[in-house]
Design a protein around this nucleic acid. Structure first.
Lengths: 334, 334
DNA sequence: TTGAAAGCGCTAACAG
DNA sequence: CTGTTAGCGCTTTCAA
C-alpha cells in the first residue's frame, strides 16, 4: 500500500542503500543516480517513515516538552519559543500538560522516555525529590526552562529572580512606600518562595521597613485572587500603598480592585508586576513590570538542548541566566 | 544497554511473545506466568520502546496538532482541550505552529504523515485549495477544529459563526444603534469574511440600516489595531456608536481607545466582542461577548478523531456544531 | 497457554 | 560510488 524505500529502489534500479543515501543527503552518490532516484521518489510520492527510521537510527528527531498548562499565557509563550527553535533544528515536539502535578510529571517523563524522544524540555514550578530522581535516570538530556532545581544539577535557563524582584521592590521603596504588599501564586513554587518572597523580605529589611506578615498573600495567582487581595487588605488599619505582584493577572486584579473601590493607581496605590506579558499594556494604567522573557527562556532552553543532544563540547554554562529588566509604564510613579 | 523485551523474556524464562502479551494486557496468559513476567519487568525497569512498537503495529498512539500559534490564547485554549481528551484516550500530541502560512501548513502535514501519527487535528483559518488537496490524500483521518472548509468534506467542530454574529449584531441594533462598526482580523480568514462580516451585513440589511464601508475595518486582530480603529473612526463626520469586535483583544483595544479619548463605554460607545476569553472580565467595563468555546471545540474535535481512528461506525455527524451563547456583561447596555 | 518466526521500513557498517 | 546484509525492538500470525 504505502510506498517504501524498497519500492523506490526497485523502480530506480538501485539498492535501498542508495535510496537511503539520497534521502539523507549523503554526498557519496553519483549526481546522475541521485537525479534518477529523486525522480522516482517524486513520481511514487515516497515519504520516509520516521518511525522505522527512528528505530534503525535510534534518533527520533522529536523532543518532549512538559509544561504545567499550555492554556496559561506564560507557558504558552515559552512553548512557542521552544517550538520555534526546535523547528529551526528540525525537531518536532511532543507537548504535554502536567498541571504541576508530581504524579503526572513523573508519568509524562516515563511516556517521553518510552517514546524515545531525543531530549526533553521541562517546566516545573517545583522540582521535587521524586522528579529529580526520575530526571537523573533519564536516558536522554533534559533541560529545565524557567524552572529551578536547587542542586543546579540539570542544565537550565532562567533569569535572576531574586535580583529582579529586589529591583522591583527598590522601585517601590524609593517611592517612599513602607506598606508594600507581596502577592504571588503558591508558595510551594520555588520561584515564589525562594526568590520573589525572599527578595521582598530582604529589600524591606535593607530599607529598615518592618515586615508585616499580613501583607504577604499567596493564592492561585489568578486575576480574581488579585481582586480579592485588595478586598482583604483594604480592611487593614494601615492598608498597603503599593503592591509587588507576581504576575500580570494578579497585578491587573489589584488595579481593578483598587479602581472599583474608587481609588486611583498610581496616585493612591502603586503596583509593579512580574511578567510583562502583552496584558501589561492592556490595562489602564499600563503596568510597570519586571520583564520575564518566557519566549526567550524557551528558545534558549531548546537551543541549549540541541547542543547537548549533539554532544557539542562547547557547552560551558549549563545553568544559563539571561538578563532581565524592568519595563516602566504608568502603574508606578516615576 | 537498554532493557528490551528480549531481556525480560530470558530472565523470566518465557518467550518474548509472552512478554509482549502481558505488556499489552492480553488475557491469554496464565496468571502465574503473568506475575513472573511482571516481576522481571519491574526488577529490570523494562520500558517498552514505543518506536519499535509503532513500527510493528503501525500505530503510534500519537496525533498531530497543527495550529496557527500556540502563544495566542485562543489557540492555546483549544490545544488544551485537544490534549486533555488525547490524554484521556492515551494519545500523545505532536504540536506545531503554522503561523497560518500555507507553505508551513503543507510541510507540517507532510511531517505528520511521515511521523506516522494516527490522526491529525487541524486548526486553520483558511483552508486553501492546496491544503484541501493534501488533506484529501492524508493517510490518516483529519478533523478540523474551529476551522471551516467550504466543502464540508472533512470532519469538523465549530459553532454557528453566522448565527452567533447575527445575534451579537441584533443586540446592538436593538439598542438603537445605526452606526455600528465591524472590526475583525484578516478577511482572508473564512470565519471573518464568510460569517462574521456576512452576518454583520445581513443584520444591518434586515434592520434597514445602510451599509457604510468605512465602518468595516480588518486588520491583524491585535489590541493595537483595536486602539487604532477608534483613532480612525472617530474622525468620521458620524463616528460609530457601537462596535462588533471579532475578538476580545480587539474589543479591549477599542474600549481603551474610546476611554483614552475621554468618552465612556457603554454610555457613549457600546462594544460587543466575539471570544469571551478570560480577558473579557479583565477590563472595565467587562466585555459582553459571544462565547467562542475554544476549549470545548478542541476537546470535541479530539473526541471525534478518536472515534474515527477507532473506526466506530456510530459517527453520524461529522460536521459538529456546538451551541453558542452570549455572555452579557457591561460593555453593552441591557 | 505458549513459542517460533516472519516481518514493520529503515540505517549503517562492510565489502567491493 | 554502490550493493549486501544485519539488525533496531516489538507485534502478530501460525503452530503446537
Amino acid at each position: 500500500m504505502t510506498v517504501t524505500i524498497y519500492d523506490v529502489a526497485r523502480e530506480a534500479n538501485v539498492s535501498m542503500a542508495t535510496v537511503s543515501r539520497v534521502v539523507n543527503g549523503n554526498q557519496n552518490v553519483k549526481p546522475s543516480t541521485r537525479k534518477k532516484v529523486l525522480e522516482v521518489i517524486e513520481r511514487l510520492e515516497y515519504r520516509p517513515n520516521a518511525v522505522a527510521r527512528g528505530l534503525a537510527s535510534k534518533k527520533t528527531t522529536t523532543v518532549g516538552v512538559i509544561i504545567p498548562d499550555i492554556s496559561n499565557n506564560i507557558y504558552a509563550e515559552a512553548a512557542r519559543g521552544i517550538e520555534d527553535i526546535a523547528t529551526m533544528y528540525r525537531y518536532n515536539i511532543i507537548l504535554a500538560n502536567s498541571d504541576q502535578n508530581e504524579e503526572k510529571e513523573l508519568s509524562l517523563l516515563d511516556t517521553m522516555y518510552g517514546k524515545q524522544v531525543d531530549g526533553i524540555v521541562m517546566m516545573s514550578d517545583a522540582v521535587t525529590e521524586k522528579l529529580h530522581k526520575s530526571m537523573e535516570h533519564s536516558p536522554v538530556p533534559i533541560v529545565l526552562a524557567g524552572s529551578v532545581d536547587d542542586t543546579n544539577q540539570f542544565p537550565s535557563v532562567n533569569i535572576d529572580y531574586f535580583q529582579a524582584s529586589y529591583e522591583a521592590m527598590q522601585l517601590l521603596i524609593n517611592n517612599g512606600h513602607t506598606r508594600i504588599a507581596f502577592l504571588s501564586g503558591p508558595l510551594n513554587y520555588t520561584i515564589n518562595s525562594k526568590f520573589k518572597l525572599e527578595a521582598y523580605k530582604k529589600a524591606l529589611q535593607d530599607a529598615n521597613i518592618e515586615l508585616d506578615e499580613r501583607l504577604i498573600i499567596s493564592e492561585d495567582g489568578s486575576y480574581d485572587s488579585g481582586l480579592e487581595a485588595w478586598e482583604t487588605l483594604r480592611e487593614l488599619e494601615a492598608p498597603p500603598t503599593a503592591f509587588f505582584a507576581g504576575s500580570d493577572e494578579l497585578a491587573i486584579g489589584i488595579i481593578h480592585g483598587v479602581q472599583d473601590d474608587g481609588k486611583k493607581v498610581p496616585d493612591d496605590v502603586e503596583v509593579i508586576s512580574f511578567e510583562n506579558s502583552k496584558l501589561a499594556r492592556m490595562v489602564r494604567p499600563r503596568l510597570t513590570s519586571v520583564v520575564f522573557p518566557l519566549y526567550d527562556i524557551g528558545a534558549v532552553a531548546m537551543r541549549l538542548l540541541t547542543k547537548i543532544m549533539n554532544k557539542e563540547d562547547n557547552v560551558k554554562d549549563k545553568n544559563v541566566i539571561i538578563p532581565h529588566r524592568i519595563e516602566t509604564r504608568q502603574s508606578v510613579k516615576l
